[in-house]
Design a protein around this nucleic acid. Structure first.
Lengths: 221, 221
DNA sequence: CGCGTGCTTGACCTAGCTCAAACCCAGTGG
DNA sequence: CCACTGGGTTTGAGCTAGGTCAAGCACGCG
């Protein structure tokens, strides 16, 4: 499923991944088309990934097709750490996405050589863990409206409070992230619109203006 | 809430925590009574913990009291890694529990000195992360019966398939772990008993014999 | 223009929640 | 010894949040 766009264009890039891998460890950039798989559950885990642009969903699936999205990754985010030899989940590009990739062994090599940056990597993992812990609280104990409000606040936060929040994912993805159906997500959006907590920008439903962050926080727990 | 039982009895102990902390970093053992708090959400994170005996639940709470248990920790498990300065969740002893404790700074010091053990610690964190990812799938997408079946299999696995599975936690804890009410958990136990997948050992409902692991696996997804 | 994808909305249904009652120990005190 | 108490658990009877199924609209694209 790899769609390599810039061929043998191997070069060090800016950002943490390059720092962790070290100057001598080169990173490649890959481009993935909307909807394509970056890696699949149980595939060999050879690389660690950092997003340059675009958006990625990581998910797990039950045999009958029920899906749970663990997290959405936006530019700057790292994913794909594995303890064992294989990936524990699937990663797919939601929109056209560019990631930089370095071999696991480079990172491990870096850890033994440069402890400070190894600590950085450790930080990325505990960050992922912290997100998972918050998300378990959401999945296990929040109502549909609280889930969607929390989701909007999370996205707003991660896009550093833009004037207009742009959602790269569709309602089904949001539902699979929040443990809801797409219809319930849609109804929650409508409810939040009706009580003036958000407004859709233009005709599209992917561009949202949050009108009252305080109000959203109140409804997110 | 600390109930220090062995006073100034500081000594190195066996196990990973001692290995990570290094020979010169001494670990203390603490005993907690059933139901007592080991650390609270937002408290300073000064230590890393490993269980010698007993059982611990780690949980997060919403303002109105709804609780989500992230995981149960059994002997050998480590918990309490933090990236920042404070704990992201509460840890409580479910039954009388002995933990060994080392200061975070000892562990960090060990990481810069002994890369191999640092890798071990990294492994513990990614292990916690892997558990969280599986648990999100469970919380977001499984039915009550699937959740309880998966829970029983998890506990059985972690007690290395004992003849009789002993549950240290009550039905409410199980419910808060699985995102269910205690009544629903109880009904699921009864259903599994009725279809001969488990039997209660004696009069107590905390001692369970799993009669058909295959059957449980089938119902756990 | 026709088609496919995504979104909304409505009507209905059901898994799991709430509320309530009853039981079963284990521990305590008379 | 028994009575009493208080967790913990089970079970039942209803209720409701959210799922399911279905229709219809809006947009973008070949």
């Amino acid at each position: 499923m790899l769609v390599r766009t810039n061929g043998a264009n191997r070069r060090p890039i800016d950002g943490h991944l390059a720092a962790v891998a070290g100057d001598r460890a080169f990173c490649s950039e890959f481009k993935y088309r909307r909807g394509t798989e970056i890696f699949g559950e149980d595939e060999d885990a050879e690389y660690v990934y950092q997003i340059s642009s675009g958006a990625v969903r990581t998910s797990k699936m039950l045999p009958d097709g029920r899906r749970q999205i663990n997290s959405f990754h936006l530019p700057g985010d790292m994913f794909g750490f594995e303890n064992g030899a294989t990936h524990r989940f699937t990663a797919e590009a939601i929109i056209e996405t560019v990631v930089s990739i370095t071999r696991r062994c480079n990172v491990v090599g870096a850890m033994t050589n440069r402890e400070k940056d190894a600590m950085n990597l450790f930080g990325f993992v505990t960050q992922n863990l912290a997100h998972a812990e918050n998300h378990m609280l959401l999945l296990g104990r929040k109502t549909a409206l609280e889930k969607v409000a929390a989701f909007l606040l999370e996205m707003d936060e991660r896009q550093s409070h833009p004037n207009i929040l742009i959602l790269p994912m569709n309602r089904r993805d949001i539902g699979d992230y929040l443990g809801l159906t797409l219809e319930t997500v849609s109804r929650a959006f409508s409810t939040l619109r009706d009580v003036q907590l958000l407004r859709f920008d233009g005709a599209t439903q992917r561009r949202v203006k949050l009108l009252d962050l305080e109000g959203l926080v109140l409804r997110s727990a």
